[in-house]
Amino acid sequence: MGARELRTLCEGGSYFEGPRWHDGRWWVSDFYRHGVFALDPDGREELVLEVAGQPSGLGWMPDGSLLVVSMLDHTLLRRAPDGTVTVHADLTEHCGGHLNDMTVDELGRAYVGNFGFDLMTFADPAGTGLVRVDPDGSAHVVADDLWFPNGTVLDGDTLIVAETFAGRLTAFSIAADGALGDRRVWGQIAPTVTPGTIEEMLPNLGFAPDGCCMDAEGHIWAADGLGGPPCRIAPGGEIVDELPLPDGLGAFACMLGGEDGRTLLLCAAPDFIEANRKDTREAVLLTTTVDVPHGGRP
């Protein structure tokens, strides 16, 4: 395909994550500005919620409450429509690293991943689980032995999670009670590397699916946690489209939205390393237009 025009929606972030389109605005977390922000289509930014524990995944419950992952203290926060903020769930006992991305279904059940290890100190990678938090705040481990569960999408009764350190998208069937079963590989994008130290694994990952979203044709746009171009992935794992970014930037999450669902928002920064990002303001939100609109959740 021909080169697409990239437009800058917002500059001056530290590290944007968890992008969503909701009620006519873009919503994003900014790790090191410790805030959840909403932006109109012209890029005007509003601070919605301060999160001292570092915000990540976002989602909404049926009553309009906003759920926010607080990474460092392993909690899921709930901001009610009147602005009241409470701890919805404490997931510390289920976390091997920072709490991370999340998706919320139409019933208000949240599926939340975590790093599994201390990425920012370059500890050895380890498998971890996916936790379902029900509307009453109770937590249930619904999958294990996942290698850095990251961006997650829902396609009807199917949940698909990016395993960043396994180079794949993994699918589960969702039962009526929210349990997960029938585990299978939805798409192997790059060969899974042998577990080892992070110095051994990271250079050999090939493609590390990060934040992602689904389109109406059942394909998935996935950012590459290694800083490569975000790609459109077909079921099975074939890359059918990619979006080169300006030199010096990688995209670490993406989301389809806009009034017609065809705007692809990219959370871009020079890298993901905390020491490089926390005191800088080099992150940007970029947009482009794609042919196939948004599908699934979020």
Rank of each mutant, 00 (worst) to 15 (best):
L107K: 13
I198A: 13
F122C: 07
A166D: 06
R132H: 00
V104K: 12
V161I: 15
I189G: 00
T152P: 02
P191S: 03
A171G: 06
I174C: 08
T170D: 04
G167I: 03
T170Q: 09
F117D: 00
F207A: 01
F172L: 07
D210S: 14
F122Q: 11
G206Q: 00
V112Y: 11
G167W: 04
G156E: 09
D177R: 11
P191E: 01
G116Q: 10
V133H: 09
F148H: 06
V141H: 03
F172G: 03
P195V: 13
G181N: 10
L205Q: 06
T194M: 13
M201D: 07
H140V: 13
F172P: 05
D157N: 15
A175H: 07
Y111T: 00
W147P: 00
T152G: 02
P135K: 10
D155Y: 05
R184I: 02
G187H: 03
V133D: 00
D155W: 14
M201N: 06
P191K: 04
I198M: 15
E106V: 14
M201K: 06
I198G: 02
G156R: 12
D177N: 14
V142N: 05
A179K: 08
D144L: 04
P203Q: 13
G127T: 14
V104E: 09
I189A: 00
P125S: 02
G113D: 02
F165G: 00
V133P: 09
V112S: 11
T170Y: 12
G108R: 07
V104R: 06
A179W: 02
F207C: 07
V153C: 13
V153P: 15
F122G: 01
L169I: 09
A190Y: 02
I189H: 00
M120R: 04
G156L: 14
P191N: 07
T164A: 05
F165H: 04
V112F: 09
I160M: 12
V161P: 11
A175S: 09
G187T: 07
F207S: 02
G151L: 12
T194C: 15
Y111D: 00
T197A: 07
T158I: 15
A208D: 03
